[in-house]
Each structure stands twice: as C-alpha cells, then as structure tokens.
C-alpha cells in the first residue's frame, strides 16, 4: 500500500468513528462498522481516484454499508433509549458526558436521513455538495434535511433540557407574573 494512502486512511479513522457512532448510536457496533468499511475500502483501493478526497470516499463506503447492512437490524438499532443507555455505559467517563447523553438521545429520534445530513454538514465539516455526493442525493435535498434536522432537534431539546434550551427570560417573567 502506498504510504500516503495508508496515512490518509488512518487519518480518516477518528472522524469515521464519530460519524459511525452518530449513525448507529452504539460504540461497539460503530467500531465494527468502521472496521468493515476499512476492509472494503482497502480491498477496493484501486477504485479510489488519487487526488480526490479520501475522507469523503471512506464516508461514502461507510454510509452505504450502514444503509445496506445495518438497516436489517433497524428495529434493534432505533430502539433508542435502552440502546443508547447501553452504548453510553461503554464509553469512558468524560466531562460533559451527561450533556452528550441528552443530545445523543435527541439525535437518535431524528429520521436517519436527516441525522446523517446534519452530522456530515454540521460536524464532519463537509460542504453541502460533498454531503450530497456521500448520500447520493441532490444538494437541495441535503439542505432541506439539515434544516429539518436542526428544527426538530431544537424542539426535542427544548422539551427535554429545560435548563439549557428552556424558557427565555421573557417567558419566565410571564410565568412568574402568573404566580
């Protein structure tokens, strides 16, 4: 394997893991997904066009593999709360973990097409065009999915996390005035 290819594949691993965990909500399963992605990618490394974005290529493989394989276990995967609780227990204790738990729970409630679009654009740092290529859809579709995901997420977190996303001062004043 070319040293530069090897380096760029390894360099993409941290972000691939973050994407995979966001997709399937389970660290062990996500790592299996990344491993299967890398096996596939390296077996087909000849189809990678040098000079193009290695990261985007790997994300595409991972996303397609997730769609085809993990959809079969969809009911299990999207059985959100219990599953998420389990997956989060497996993660090392880190500050802010509680915050992420709430956030991940909300993220898990989004339709998967909205979730992947939001992650690719909002966290992985891909452009709308790159995200559209990865997901095999139109740029406009990605934009609308990202917008819907943001709106839904804000709604979900406003309900669940009163302290962080709850009533603004004005609403509190109205509530206090009612007492």
């Amino acid at each position: 394997m070319d040293e530069s290819v090897r380096k760029s594949v390894l360099a993409a691993v941290p972000s691939l893991r973050a994407f995979a965990i966001s997709l399937c909500g389970n660290v062990d399963r996500a790592d299996d997904l990344v491993q299967e992605t890398m096996v596939r990618a390296l077996a087909n490394i000849d189809s990678f066009q040098p000079g193009t974005n290695m990261s985007a290529w790997l994300f595409t493989i991972l996303r397609n593999h997730f769609r085809s394989e993990y959809r079969k276990r969809r009911r299990e995967v999207e059985d959100s709360d219990g599953h998420y609780a389990d997956s989060l227990k497996q993660q090392p204790e880190q500050h802010g973990q509680v915050e992420f738990t709430e956030f991940r729970k909300a993220l898990a409630q989004l339709p998967s097409d909205q979730r992947e679009a939001l992650i690719l654009v909002g966290a992985s740092g891909f452009s709308y065009e790159e995200a559209a290529n990865i997901c095999g859809c139109a740029v406009g579709t990605i934009k609308s999915r990202v917008n819907r995901a943001r709106t839904r997420l804000a709604e979900l977190l406003a309900i669940d996390g009163v302290n962080d996303f709850g009533p603004d001062e004005q609403t509190r004043a109205v509530l206090a005035g009612g007492e």
């Binding site: 941290p14 972000s15 893991r17 973050a18 994407f19 965990i21 966001s22 880190q94 802010g96 915050e99 992420f100 956030f103 991940r104 993220l107 939001l118 992650i119 909002g122 966290a123 992985s124 943001r150 997420l153 804000a154 977190l157 406003a158 962080d164 996303f165």
Partner: peptide, 17 residues
C-alpha cells in the same frame, strides 16, 4: 439555539474524534 445546537453537535463529535 441554532448556535448552541451546532456547538453541542461538534462537541459530541469531537469528543470521539
């Protein structure tokens, strides 16, 4: 809220990265 969502999303993601 949008800005906070973005921050949390990246914080969650970067935690793994």
């Amino acid at each position: 809220v949008q800005a906070r969502l973005g921050q949390q999303l990246r914080a969650m993601y970067d935690d793994v990265v």
